[in-house]
Design a protein around this nucleic acid. Sequence first.
DNA 1: CCCTGGCACTCGGGCCTCGAGAGTGCCAAC
DNA 2: GTTGGCACTCTCGAGGCCCGAGTGCCAGGG
Lengths: 339, 339
Amino acid sequence: MLEDRRLDVLRAIVEDFVSTQEPVGSKSLVERHNLGVSPATIRNDMAVLEEEGYIAQPHTSAGRVPTDKGYRLFVDRLATVKPLTSAERRAISTFLDGSVDLDDVVDRTVRLLAQLTRQVAVVQYPSLTRSGVRHVEVLPLGGGRIMVVLITDTGRVEQRVLEFAGPLGEQVLTDVRSRLNAEVVGLRLADVPGAVETLRETFPVADRALVDAVLASLLEMVVEQREERVVLAGTANLARFGQDFPRSISPVLQALEEHVVLLQLLGEASDTDEVTVRIGHEIEHEGLATTSMVAVNYGILDEPLARLGVLGPTRMDYPGTMGAVRAVARYVGRILSGR
Amino acid sequence: MLEDRRLDVLRAIVEDFVSTQEPVGSKSLVERHNLGVSPATIRNDMAVLEEEGYIAQPHTSAGRVPTDKGYRLFVDRLATVKPLTSAERRAISTFLDGSVDLDDVVDRTVRLLAQLTRQVAVVQYPSLTRSGVRHVEVLPLGGGRIMVVLITDTGRVEQRVLEFAGPLGEQVLTDVRSRLNAEVVGLRLADVPGAVETLRETFPVADRALVDAVLASLLEMVVEQREERVVLAGTANLARFGQDFPRSISPVLQALEEHVVLLQLLGEASDTDEVTVRIGHEIEHEGLATTSMVAVNYGILDEPLARLGVLGPTRMDYPGTMGAVRAVARYVGRILSGR
DNA sequence: CCCTGGCACTCGGGCCTCGAGAGTGCCAAC
DNA sequence: GTTGGCACTCTCGAGGCCCGAGTGCCAGGG
């Protein structure tokens, strides 16, 4: 059973290691924190903590370093999310206000987050399936091609061009357009397939082929896998942690380019609205075994739309990072609600 | 005056250095290329080449390394663009065919280019000003807000939401929409401001405020500076060249995040349709002093729309990279023409 | 029972030395 | 103009050494 002081020792080790980046020894620990006991006592505690797997020594006769398990305990029980300074809050609002469209919001957010945390920031585009339909547009392009445009209430715009071999009745298209809008505007995208199903039957059989093609394009956009897009910034911050990545930062950079991996990572634990943390080996990806991800939902009016977060070395300032991530997510939610 | 053999020597040095990554000496040079003379002779040539600034030694009694000037001469006079293998050509087409929209084309292109060259790939979105208008959509969103959507013939979609205080005549909007489309569809975006100017006067004075607001949004999209977007991939490839970046790769990564810098770099020499190369210090950006950029225009039917290219260490395989960049650009142009 | 000071031990990193090897510049000869 | 010879320079890696931080353990004290 862990006693109070031992937890204090673990907290002290994590804090010191995060700030100095060097293994921390018993002596420097008592010097920097007034623990009220001698180094020898701390050593005993450390021995126990090591026994239980919360800390480790890189090599005999070096200081101790927190293990993933140690960070986990720290995050779960020892750390409190650090609120931002008012200067930082101001930075957020000045940075995000005045974005012109969704792309811009996402772009600014990811840069801001990277700058604020000095880590790699990751922002997922508002999920299509959770958004609502604002408008559907059907445009004849000439040459037998039709463009179908889908605009969501989160400001996202998706488009498809389809080729249609048969005759292109202008009137039919206009008809499809208005009836489609009447039917699906305001619906969640997830509900679109169901709503659309009956729609085709309201058209004369002669036009069915055309209607079907348009609807198919629409459905494709709604369900497509690429709906999940992700943007990142601050990769240069990785280079500051050269020593944290034993081999090189190459595998980390590589993992960052695999957006699928990032999305999966972001998506984990998305059923809570709390800030979630994945530490080191808890991330099941080889290249990211020495990194941690701090992520949280963001959305409109407490309705989660997607997630954002940052990725950095396991040795990161968890309280500060969690605070920044949470604050940015809240502000982005507010921005999106306002448009 | 440089003689033929001296140029041969320079070429050999560049080729060897690029492939071995190590300073090349006179002895190994005669071994690997049959130059028909002895090392001592080569040494004399090298002395001259060094005198003239084409090569340099990292330190006394090491081999020689090409300077930026040396690479420049190599690229200008000694290298021929290496055509791709048929396997590579096939890779390009299988990779790029089947992209669903512009975002997808750009995304696939940049990944492909990164993979092909094993460098950092950079693709600029088709420039707005050079595109044509395919359609303009004006949508009332409710709550006094209006969305203006611009769709270009390159498949790009831009949008703006504007707040309008006054009454929102549905009829007026429909009217604006149709007249606007009649007026500007088919025009180059650059010509839109002129065409639109007279349009407002065709509306009754009572509606002018609304019309003006819509037109203003449209113009904002047309002229906005953010029109120039850039996407990159393959940053992980940078890590393979750790030794090429003396300090660390951090400044390079940093520069890559400043898209403005990349755009400027890409944009240089965009008036030619040839592949252009910027070497080392020719790039006027501190972080990129040891990198080179290979870029080329791409477009629809020989009409340049934007540029793409790759960025890598000055010590790169120029002929191969130039070949890959050119081939990809051509293929992308073809893809874009087809939609 | 827990804490403490003392002490011997361990080990990695910094620093130095040294030799090997690669490469050069120069020179005299062809 | 080219070549072989030669002395010289400089980097790099291996080996050896020492220092210091940090540890584990133990006996004594509250």
